[in-house]
């Protein structure tokens, strides 16, 4: 049952309404402006607890602003975001203690040693222990006695991950968490996400914005495509994989429900992205070719 107001279909994007009552994260018409520029335009989705959302879009699509708005770090001009039912602009300490955030370009106090910085931010959380901090630092090959200003970009990113996860948060928000990590470091990071079976009843919910689509394919249960500040597509990963197809036809498909995008190719043929839940494949014109899409192909079909 969709009990959240205004989470039905929106005109230029397909959204799959998700149960609102059990949602960890709700964006309810989030709109952000920087001066005259609308950076986020009426963004709506609800993410259930235990889901991992991959946020995908071209540079400048609004991904970083969206993550910051969800955390209440940028003011909205309309709409609101809620984390565990709590308005992001007025998060209480109980919800705050459950959050972990990795910013795209983390700012650190360079004069502190790694262990001092981690303890400074970790100590105030009930679930933090020095043992947990040292274990995570060791897993991410961080020398705890080094001063932060001497870390390489990759090490700073690993430090940001440890900072976000050392207090065992339930809700993680990662803005390009692994862009500077090598492939093995990225694997370590992804494995760490799912290591909490014994850690309690609350499933981990996460939002990850990344251009590394292969990594998202491995972990994402849901996908959100942003384009110029709007939601192009939101839904369960498997549903999108099974119901979206790219169709090539000689003539353009008529604009109708189920045709998400149509564009002309260099060779004169038309490529359309269709949703077979709204448009039966059998009704396509004769001669149309149809194929399923991987995440990269879907990204190209939406943005290319």
């Amino acid at each position: 049952m969709n009990t959240e107001p205004g989470l039905g279909l929106i005109t230029d994007a397909i959204t799959e309404p998700t149960a609102g009552t059990d949602a960890a994260i709700v964006a309810d018409g989030v709109t952000v402006r920087h001066g005259d520029v609308t950076v986020l335009n009426d963004v709506r989705f609800a993410l259930p607890r235990g889901a991992v959302l991959g946020v995908v879009g071209r540079n400048g699509a609004g991904k970083t602003t969206l993550l910051r708005a969800l955390l209440g770090l940028v003011p909205t001009v309309a709409g609101e975001a809620r984390l565990y039912g709590c308005d992001s602009r007025a998060l209480d300490d109980r919800v705050r203690a459950r959050l972990g955030y990795v910013a795209q370009s983390p700012e650190f106090y360079g004069w502190l040693r790694v262990r001092e910085l981690l303890a400074l931010f970790g100590q105030s959380y009930p679930a933090w222990t020095e043992e947990r901090m040292r274990e995570l630092a060791a897993r991410f090959d961080l020398a705890v006695d080094l001063r932060v200003r001497h870390l390489s970009p990759g090490e700073r990113q690993r430090l940001a991950i440890v900072l976000a996860m050392q207090h065992r948060p339930d809700l993680l928000i990662f803005d390009e968490p692994v862009a500077s990590l090598d492939p093995l470091g990225r694997r370590d990071f992804l494995r760490l996400l799912f290591e909490r079976d014994e850690e309690g009843p609350e499933p981990l919910t996460a939002i990850i914005s990344s251009h590394l689509l292969d990594d998202l394919e491995r972990v994402a249960t849901h996908l959100l495509f942003l384009h110029q500040g709007r939601v192009q597509l939101f839904g369960e990963r498997d549903g999108l994989a099974e119901h979206l197809h790219e169709v090539v036809t000689a003539a353009p498909l008529p604009t109708r429900d189920g045709v998400l995008r149509s564009r002309r190719q260099g060779d004169g043929a038309w490529r359309s992205l269709i949703d077979d839940r709204r448009l039966a494949l059998a009704t396509l014109p004769a001669g149309a070719t149809c194929r399923p899409l991987g995440l990269l192909e879907l990204f190209v079909a939406l943005n290319g």
């Binding site: 491995r218 498997d238 994989a241 399923p292 192909e297």
Partner: peptide, 11 residues
């Protein structure tokens, strides 16, 4: 194959 069009559970 994560990049395949076939979802991982289906694989």
């Amino acid at each position: 194959q994560p990049s395949s069009a076939t979802p991982l559970y289906r694989q």
